[in-house]
Design a protein around this nucleic acid. Structure first.
Lengths: 196, 196
DNA sequence: TACAATACGGAGGCAGCCTCCGGTTTATCA
DNA sequence: TGATAAACCGGAGGCTGCCTCCGTATTGTA
Protein backbone atom coordinates (compact mmCIF):
# COMPACT_ATOMS: atom_id res chain seq x y z
CA UNK A 1 0.00 0.00 0.00
CA UNK A 2 2.26 2.75 -1.16
CA UNK A 3 0.57 6.05 -0.48
CA UNK A 4 0.93 8.54 -3.26
CA UNK A 5 -0.03 11.59 -1.23
CA UNK A 6 2.60 13.30 0.88
CA UNK A 7 1.89 13.58 4.56
CA UNK A 8 2.69 17.25 4.36
CA UNK A 9 1.55 19.13 1.28
CA UNK A 10 4.34 20.59 -0.78
CA UNK A 11 4.13 24.31 -1.49
CA UNK A 12 4.01 23.91 -5.21
CA UNK A 13 1.56 26.36 -6.73
CA UNK A 14 0.55 25.67 -10.28
CA UNK A 15 -1.04 28.78 -11.75
CA UNK A 16 -4.74 28.91 -12.58
CA UNK A 17 -5.08 30.62 -15.91
CA UNK A 18 -5.05 28.23 -18.84
CA UNK A 19 -2.06 29.64 -20.70
CA UNK A 20 -0.09 30.11 -17.52
CA UNK A 21 -0.73 26.55 -16.41
CA UNK A 22 0.29 25.22 -19.80
CA UNK A 23 3.55 27.16 -19.77
CA UNK A 24 4.24 26.07 -16.22
CA UNK A 25 4.10 22.44 -17.24
CA UNK A 26 6.17 23.07 -20.35
CA UNK A 27 8.85 24.74 -18.26
CA UNK A 28 9.03 22.08 -15.57
CA UNK A 29 9.19 19.33 -18.16
CA UNK A 30 11.89 21.10 -20.13
CA UNK A 31 13.83 21.80 -16.96
CA UNK A 32 13.66 18.20 -15.80
CA UNK A 33 15.04 16.97 -19.12
CA UNK A 34 17.71 19.64 -19.32
CA UNK A 35 18.85 19.14 -15.72
CA UNK A 36 19.10 15.40 -16.20
CA UNK A 37 21.02 15.72 -19.45
CA UNK A 38 23.37 18.60 -18.81
CA UNK A 39 23.37 19.10 -15.06
CA UNK A 40 21.67 21.71 -12.95
CA UNK A 41 23.71 24.56 -14.32
CA UNK A 42 22.03 24.47 -17.69
CA UNK A 43 21.39 27.93 -19.03
CA UNK A 44 17.95 29.15 -18.05
CA UNK A 45 17.58 30.69 -21.47
CA UNK A 46 18.19 27.25 -22.94
CA UNK A 47 15.40 25.84 -20.80
CA UNK A 48 13.04 28.60 -21.87
CA UNK A 49 13.98 27.88 -25.48
CA UNK A 50 13.28 24.17 -25.06
CA UNK A 51 9.94 24.94 -23.48
CA UNK A 52 9.14 27.31 -26.31
CA UNK A 53 8.42 30.27 -24.05
CA UNK A 54 10.11 33.60 -23.50
CA UNK A 55 12.74 34.08 -20.86
CA UNK A 56 10.50 36.58 -19.13
CA UNK A 57 7.85 33.94 -18.61
CA UNK A 58 10.34 31.64 -16.96
CA UNK A 59 11.55 34.32 -14.59
CA UNK A 60 8.06 35.45 -13.65
CA UNK A 61 7.11 31.95 -12.58
CA UNK A 62 10.46 30.90 -11.15
CA UNK A 63 12.29 33.88 -9.74
CA UNK A 64 15.45 31.88 -9.24
CA UNK A 65 17.09 28.72 -10.48
CA UNK A 66 16.35 27.19 -7.09
CA UNK A 67 12.63 27.79 -7.53
CA UNK A 68 12.78 25.82 -10.75
CA UNK A 69 14.72 23.04 -9.07
CA UNK A 70 12.09 22.88 -6.37
CA UNK A 71 9.32 22.32 -8.86
CA UNK A 72 11.28 19.54 -10.50
CA UNK A 73 12.14 17.90 -7.21
CA UNK A 74 8.62 17.55 -5.97
CA UNK A 75 7.98 14.41 -7.99
CA UNK A 76 11.34 12.91 -7.21
CA UNK A 77 10.98 13.43 -3.49
CA UNK A 78 7.57 11.87 -3.56
CA UNK A 79 8.91 8.77 -5.24
CA UNK A 80 11.68 8.45 -2.67
CA UNK A 81 9.14 8.59 0.15
CA UNK A 82 6.81 6.12 -1.50
CA UNK A 83 9.56 3.61 -1.90
CA UNK A 84 10.34 3.75 1.81
CA UNK A 85 6.80 2.71 2.63
CA UNK A 86 6.93 -0.12 0.12
CA UNK A 87 10.09 -1.55 1.60
CA UNK A 88 8.82 -1.25 5.14
CA UNK A 89 5.91 -3.51 4.27
CA UNK A 90 7.85 -6.21 2.48
CA UNK A 91 11.25 -6.59 4.12
CA UNK A 92 12.86 -7.15 7.47
CA UNK A 93 13.95 -4.18 9.59
CA UNK A 94 17.52 -3.85 8.43
CA UNK A 95 16.87 -5.09 4.91
CA UNK A 96 14.19 -2.46 4.38
CA UNK A 97 16.50 0.30 5.47
CA UNK A 98 19.27 -1.12 3.32
CA UNK A 99 17.02 -1.44 0.29
CA UNK A 100 15.84 2.12 0.70
CA UNK A 101 19.34 3.51 0.93
CA UNK A 102 20.41 1.45 -2.06
CA UNK A 103 17.53 2.75 -4.11
CA UNK A 104 18.48 6.22 -2.94
CA UNK A 105 22.00 5.80 -4.27
CA UNK A 106 20.88 4.19 -7.50
CA UNK A 107 18.45 6.99 -8.08
CA UNK A 108 21.07 9.60 -7.33
CA UNK A 109 23.46 8.15 -9.88
CA UNK A 110 20.88 7.90 -12.61
CA UNK A 111 19.72 11.45 -12.07
CA UNK A 112 23.25 12.75 -11.82
CA UNK A 113 23.66 16.10 -10.19
CA UNK A 114 19.94 16.62 -9.92
CA UNK A 115 19.69 14.43 -6.87
CA UNK A 116 23.09 15.65 -5.77
CA UNK A 117 21.69 19.09 -5.32
CA UNK A 118 18.71 17.56 -3.64
CA UNK A 119 20.92 16.09 -1.00
CA UNK A 120 22.82 19.29 -0.61
CA UNK A 121 19.53 21.03 -0.15
CA UNK A 122 18.57 18.63 2.61
CA UNK A 123 20.76 20.76 4.83
CA UNK A 124 19.30 24.06 3.72
CA UNK A 125 16.82 26.32 5.39
CA UNK A 126 14.14 27.12 2.85
CA UNK A 127 10.46 26.69 3.57
CA UNK A 128 10.17 24.34 0.66
CA UNK A 129 13.00 22.07 1.57
CA UNK A 130 12.00 21.92 5.19
CA UNK A 131 8.70 20.41 4.11
CA UNK A 132 10.45 17.99 1.78
CA UNK A 133 12.78 17.14 4.60
CA UNK A 134 9.82 16.45 6.82
CA UNK A 135 8.34 14.02 4.34
CA UNK A 136 11.59 12.22 3.70
CA UNK A 137 12.33 12.22 7.37
CA UNK A 138 8.97 10.70 8.15
CA UNK A 139 9.46 7.97 5.59
CA UNK A 140 13.03 7.26 6.63
CA UNK A 141 12.36 7.39 10.35
CA UNK A 142 9.84 4.64 9.93
CA UNK A 143 12.54 2.39 8.54
CA UNK A 144 15.22 3.54 10.94
CA UNK A 145 13.16 3.15 14.08
CA UNK A 146 12.10 -0.34 13.08
CA UNK A 147 15.72 -1.25 12.52
CA UNK A 148 16.65 0.23 15.88
CA UNK A 149 13.86 -1.63 17.63
CA UNK A 150 15.10 -4.86 16.12
CA UNK A 151 18.60 -4.13 17.37
CA UNK A 152 19.89 -4.18 13.81
CA UNK A 153 21.48 -0.74 13.99
CA UNK A 154 22.98 1.40 16.73
CA UNK A 155 20.32 3.29 18.69
CA UNK A 156 22.10 6.66 18.76
CA UNK A 157 22.08 7.09 15.00
CA UNK A 158 20.37 10.08 13.44
CA UNK A 159 18.47 9.77 10.18
CA UNK A 160 19.69 13.02 8.73
CA UNK A 161 23.27 12.02 9.40
CA UNK A 162 22.75 8.82 7.48
CA UNK A 163 21.07 10.55 4.59
CA UNK A 164 23.76 13.15 4.37
CA UNK A 165 26.44 10.52 4.35
CA UNK A 166 24.68 8.45 1.73
CA UNK A 167 24.00 11.55 -0.31
CA UNK A 168 27.69 12.39 -0.22
CA UNK A 169 28.47 9.11 -1.94
CA UNK A 170 27.11 10.29 -5.25
CA UNK A 171 28.39 13.80 -4.85
CA UNK A 172 31.64 13.23 -6.65
CA UNK A 173 31.88 13.56 -10.37
CA UNK A 174 31.43 10.44 -12.47
CA UNK A 175 31.22 7.85 -9.76
CA UNK A 176 30.97 4.25 -10.94
CA UNK A 177 27.92 2.33 -9.76
CA UNK A 178 30.19 -0.43 -8.52
CA UNK A 179 32.18 1.98 -6.40
CA UNK A 180 29.02 3.54 -5.06
CA UNK A 181 27.94 0.07 -3.96
CA UNK A 182 31.18 -0.45 -2.09
CA UNK A 183 30.93 2.92 -0.36
CA UNK A 184 27.40 2.15 0.69
CA UNK A 185 28.56 -1.18 2.06
CA UNK A 186 30.99 0.64 4.30
CA UNK A 187 28.25 2.93 5.53
CA UNK A 188 25.86 0.06 6.16
CA UNK A 189 28.53 -1.75 8.12
CA UNK A 190 28.97 1.43 10.13
CA UNK A 191 25.33 1.44 11.15
CA UNK A 192 25.37 -1.96 12.82
CA UNK A 193 25.77 -2.24 16.56
CA UNK A 194 29.31 -2.50 17.84
CA UNK A 195 29.99 -5.94 19.28
CA UNK A 196 29.92 -5.72 23.04
CA UNK B 1 60.18 13.12 10.42
CA UNK B 2 57.69 14.65 8.11
CA UNK B 3 59.16 14.80 4.66
CA UNK B 4 58.38 18.02 2.85
CA UNK B 5 59.22 16.73 -0.61
CA UNK B 6 56.60 14.81 -2.53
CA UNK B 7 57.54 11.35 -3.68
CA UNK B 8 56.38 12.29 -7.13
CA UNK B 9 57.14 15.82 -8.31
CA UNK B 10 54.12 17.92 -9.07
CA UNK B 11 53.99 19.60 -12.48
CA UNK B 12 53.88 23.13 -11.18
CA UNK B 13 56.00 25.51 -13.26
CA UNK B 14 56.75 28.88 -11.73
CA UNK B 15 57.92 31.31 -14.42
CA UNK B 16 61.50 32.61 -14.55
CA UNK B 17 61.40 36.29 -15.30
CA UNK B 18 61.30 38.46 -12.21
CA UNK B 19 58.06 40.29 -12.88
CA UNK B 20 56.35 37.13 -14.08
CA UNK B 21 57.38 35.17 -10.99
CA UNK B 22 56.19 37.97 -8.74
CA UNK B 23 52.80 38.10 -10.42
CA UNK B 24 52.53 34.33 -10.30
CA UNK B 25 52.88 34.39 -6.54
CA UNK B 26 50.50 37.30 -6.19
CA UNK B 27 47.89 35.44 -8.21
CA UNK B 28 48.17 32.14 -6.37
CA UNK B 29 48.02 33.89 -3.01
CA UNK B 30 45.02 35.95 -4.03
CA UNK B 31 43.30 32.88 -5.44
CA UNK B 32 43.89 30.85 -2.30
CA UNK B 33 42.33 33.58 -0.16
CA UNK B 34 39.42 34.17 -2.51
CA UNK B 35 38.65 30.48 -2.93
CA UNK B 36 38.68 29.95 0.81
CA UNK B 37 36.46 32.94 1.48
CA UNK B 38 33.94 32.81 -1.32
CA UNK B 39 34.24 29.34 -2.80
CA UNK B 40 35.90 28.18 -5.96
CA UNK B 41 33.54 30.00 -8.24
CA UNK B 42 34.89 33.40 -7.33
CA UNK B 43 35.12 35.65 -10.34
CA UNK B 44 38.53 35.40 -11.97
CA UNK B 45 38.47 39.13 -12.57
CA UNK B 46 38.00 39.56 -8.82
CA UNK B 47 41.09 37.46 -8.20
CA UNK B 48 43.10 39.46 -10.71
CA UNK B 49 41.92 42.62 -8.99
CA UNK B 50 42.97 41.33 -5.58
CA UNK B 51 46.34 40.39 -6.94
CA UNK B 52 46.68 43.81 -8.52
CA UNK B 53 47.35 42.48 -11.99
CA UNK B 54 45.45 42.64 -15.24
CA UNK B 55 43.00 39.96 -16.24
CA UNK B 56 45.17 39.20 -19.25
CA UNK B 57 48.08 38.30 -17.01
CA UNK B 58 45.96 35.83 -15.09
CA UNK B 59 44.72 34.14 -18.23
CA UNK B 60 48.16 33.91 -19.78
CA UNK B 61 49.53 32.07 -16.78
CA UNK B 62 46.43 30.05 -15.96
CA UNK B 63 44.46 29.27 -19.10
CA UNK B 64 41.55 27.92 -17.13
CA UNK B 65 40.07 28.11 -13.67
CA UNK B 66 41.24 24.54 -13.14
CA UNK B 67 44.84 25.51 -13.82
CA UNK B 68 44.58 28.06 -11.04
CA UNK B 69 43.02 25.53 -8.72
CA UNK B 70 45.86 23.16 -9.41
CA UNK B 71 48.45 25.71 -8.42
CA UNK B 72 46.60 26.39 -5.18
CA UNK B 73 46.16 22.71 -4.41
CA UNK B 74 49.81 21.80 -4.61
CA UNK B 75 50.54 23.11 -1.12
CA UNK B 76 47.38 21.69 0.37
CA UNK B 77 47.97 18.21 -1.01
CA UNK B 78 51.50 18.29 0.29
CA UNK B 79 50.29 19.12 3.77
CA UNK B 80 47.77 16.29 3.68
CA UNK B 81 50.49 13.81 2.74
CA UNK B 82 52.90 15.12 5.35
CA UNK B 83 50.35 14.72 8.06
CA UNK B 84 49.85 11.07 7.18
CA UNK B 85 53.51 10.39 7.75
CA UNK B 86 53.45 12.21 11.05
CA UNK B 87 50.54 10.17 12.36
CA UNK B 88 52.07 6.91 11.19
CA UNK B 89 55.09 7.55 13.39
CA UNK B 90 53.28 8.53 16.56
CA UNK B 91 50.06 6.55 16.80
CA UNK B 92 48.76 3.01 16.72
CA UNK B 93 47.57 1.50 13.44
CA UNK B 94 43.90 2.35 13.64
CA UNK B 95 44.39 5.57 15.54
CA UNK B 96 46.78 6.88 12.92
CA UNK B 97 44.29 6.20 10.15
CA UNK B 98 41.52 7.72 12.22
CA UNK B 99 43.55 10.81 13.02
CA UNK B 100 44.43 11.28 9.38
CA UNK B 101 40.84 11.03 8.24
CA UNK B 102 39.73 13.40 10.98
CA UNK B 103 42.32 15.92 9.95
CA UNK B 104 41.14 15.43 6.39
CA UNK B 105 37.59 16.30 7.35
CA UNK B 106 38.59 19.20 9.56
CA UNK B 107 40.72 20.59 6.79
CA UNK B 108 37.95 20.17 4.27
CA UNK B 109 35.52 22.09 6.41
CA UNK B 110 37.88 24.96 7.09
CA UNK B 111 38.73 25.28 3.44
CA UNK B 112 35.13 24.95 2.39
CA UNK B 113 34.58 23.99 -1.19
CA UNK B 114 38.25 24.25 -2.01
CA UNK B 115 38.92 20.82 -0.60
CA UNK B 116 35.53 19.69 -1.79
CA UNK B 117 36.64 20.19 -5.35
CA UNK B 118 39.88 18.51 -4.46
CA UNK B 119 38.01 15.40 -3.48
CA UNK B 120 35.86 15.56 -6.55
CA UNK B 121 39.01 15.87 -8.57
CA UNK B 122 40.41 12.76 -6.94
CA UNK B 123 38.24 10.88 -9.38
CA UNK B 124 39.32 12.83 -12.41
CA UNK B 125 41.73 11.92 -15.16
CA UNK B 126 44.12 14.82 -15.58
CA UNK B 127 47.89 14.38 -15.53
CA UNK B 128 48.13 16.74 -12.63
CA UNK B 129 45.57 15.07 -10.46
CA UNK B 130 46.86 11.62 -11.18
CA UNK B 131 50.18 12.65 -9.68
CA UNK B 132 48.44 14.20 -6.70
CA UNK B 133 46.43 11.05 -6.33
CA UNK B 134 49.59 9.01 -6.37
CA UNK B 135 51.08 11.03 -3.54
CA UNK B 136 47.97 10.95 -1.42
CA UNK B 137 47.49 7.30 -2.16
CA UNK B 138 51.03 6.53 -1.11
CA UNK B 139 50.60 8.39 2.15
CA UNK B 140 47.21 6.88 2.86
CA UNK B 141 48.14 3.37 1.88
CA UNK B 142 50.87 3.41 4.46
CA UNK B 143 48.28 4.03 7.16
CA UNK B 144 45.70 1.69 5.72
CA UNK B 145 48.03 -1.25 5.24
CA UNK B 146 49.32 -0.93 8.78
CA UNK B 147 45.77 -0.92 10.08
CA UNK B 148 44.96 -3.97 7.97
CA UNK B 149 48.04 -5.80 9.18
CA UNK B 150 47.00 -5.14 12.76
CA UNK B 151 43.54 -6.51 12.04
CA UNK B 152 42.00 -3.17 12.96
CA UNK B 153 40.10 -2.77 9.69
CA UNK B 154 38.62 -5.13 7.11
CA UNK B 155 41.22 -6.38 4.65
CA UNK B 156 39.17 -5.92 1.50
CA UNK B 157 38.86 -2.16 1.89
CA UNK B 158 40.18 0.14 -0.81
CA UNK B 159 41.83 3.44 0.07
CA UNK B 160 40.22 5.43 -2.70
CA UNK B 161 36.80 4.20 -1.60
CA UNK B 162 37.47 5.46 1.89
CA UNK B 163 38.76 8.80 0.72
CA UNK B 164 35.82 9.30 -1.56
CA UNK B 165 33.40 8.50 1.21
CA UNK B 166 35.14 10.79 3.65
CA UNK B 167 35.39 13.46 1.03
CA UNK B 168 31.66 13.23 0.47
CA UNK B 169 31.05 14.14 4.08
CA UNK B 170 32.06 17.74 3.55
CA UNK B 171 30.49 17.98 0.15
CA UNK B 172 27.19 19.33 1.34
CA UNK B 173 26.71 23.00 1.83
CA UNK B 174 27.22 24.40 5.31
CA UNK B 175 27.85 21.23 7.23
CA UNK B 176 28.34 21.64 10.97
CA UNK B 177 31.64 20.39 12.35
CA UNK B 178 29.74 18.38 14.95
CA UNK B 179 27.68 16.64 12.28
CA UNK B 180 30.78 15.96 10.22
CA UNK B 181 32.27 14.26 13.28
CA UNK B 182 29.23 12.02 13.61
CA UNK B 183 29.29 11.07 9.94
CA UNK B 184 32.95 10.21 10.21
CA UNK B 185 32.21 8.08 13.25
CA UNK B 186 29.81 6.06 11.15
CA UNK B 187 32.41 5.60 8.44
CA UNK B 188 35.08 4.61 10.94
CA UNK B 189 32.75 2.07 12.46
CA UNK B 190 32.18 0.75 8.96
CA UNK B 191 35.87 0.11 8.47
CA UNK B 192 36.27 -2.24 11.41
CA UNK B 193 36.19 -5.97 10.92
CA UNK B 194 32.79 -7.59 11.16
CA UNK B 195 32.48 -9.78 14.22
CA UNK B 196 32.85 -13.40 13.18
C1' DT C 1 73.24 51.46 -23.86
C1' DA C 2 70.60 49.07 -27.17
C1' DC C 3 68.18 45.11 -28.67
C1' DA C 4 65.27 41.03 -28.55
C1' DA C 5 62.50 38.28 -25.90
C1' DT C 6 59.19 38.14 -22.67
C1' DA C 7 55.42 39.89 -20.09
C1' DC C 8 51.73 43.31 -19.05
C1' DG C 9 46.94 44.80 -19.05
C1' DG C 10 42.78 46.44 -20.67
C1' DA C 11 39.55 46.95 -24.57
C1' DG C 12 36.12 44.29 -26.61
C1' DG C 13 33.28 40.29 -28.24
C1' DC C 14 30.34 36.82 -26.37
C1' DA C 15 27.06 34.46 -23.24
C1' DG C 16 24.24 34.05 -19.29
C1' DC C 17 21.49 36.43 -15.53
C1' DC C 18 17.77 39.13 -14.52
C1' DT C 19 14.31 43.29 -15.02
C1' DC C 20 10.99 45.99 -17.10
C1' DC C 21 7.08 47.22 -19.74
C1' DG C 22 4.20 47.54 -24.10
C1' DG C 23 1.26 44.38 -26.26
C1' DT C 24 -1.70 40.15 -25.97
C1' DT C 25 -4.66 36.57 -24.02
C1' DT C 26 -7.99 34.95 -20.74
C1' DA C 27 -11.83 34.93 -17.55
C1' DT C 28 -15.88 37.25 -16.08
C1' DC C 29 -20.09 39.64 -16.07
C1' DA C 30 -24.00 41.83 -18.08
C1' DT D 1 -22.21 37.34 -27.09
C1' DG D 2 -19.34 41.39 -26.43
C1' DA D 3 -16.82 44.48 -23.45
C1' DT D 4 -13.66 45.22 -19.66
C1' DA D 5 -10.18 44.35 -16.25
C1' DA D 6 -6.94 41.38 -14.63
C1' DA D 7 -3.44 38.31 -15.64
C1' DC D 8 0.03 36.96 -18.61
C1' DC D 9 3.51 36.90 -22.50
C1' DG D 10 8.01 37.75 -24.40
C1' DG D 11 11.94 40.05 -25.84
C1' DA D 12 14.86 44.19 -25.59
C1' DG D 13 18.45 45.78 -22.75
C1' DG D 14 21.57 46.55 -18.72
C1' DC D 15 24.79 44.06 -16.02
C1' DT D 16 28.54 40.86 -14.95
C1' DG D 17 31.74 37.32 -15.85
C1' DC D 18 34.50 34.61 -19.36
C1' DC D 19 38.08 34.73 -22.46
C1' DT D 20 41.11 36.68 -26.56
C1' DC D 21 43.97 39.77 -28.84
C1' DC D 22 47.43 43.05 -29.53
C1' DG D 23 49.82 47.55 -28.70
C1' DT D 24 52.87 48.94 -24.99
C1' DA D 25 56.16 48.23 -21.22
C1' DT D 26 59.64 45.64 -18.74
C1' DT D 27 63.51 42.54 -18.28
C1' DG D 28 67.80 40.13 -19.27
C1' DT D 29 71.80 40.26 -22.15
C1' DA D 30 75.59 41.65 -25.14
Amino acid sequence: MSSTAASHPLPCSRPTRADAARNYDLLVTAARQAFAEHGTDTSLEEIARRAGVGIGTLYRRFPSRTALLEAVYVDEIQSVCDRANGFADKLGPFEALEAWLRSFVGYSISKKSLAGELTVALGKDSEFFSVCKMNVREAGDLLLSKAKAAGAVRPELDLMDILRLVGGITMGRDIEPAQAERLLDIVLAGLRPTPA
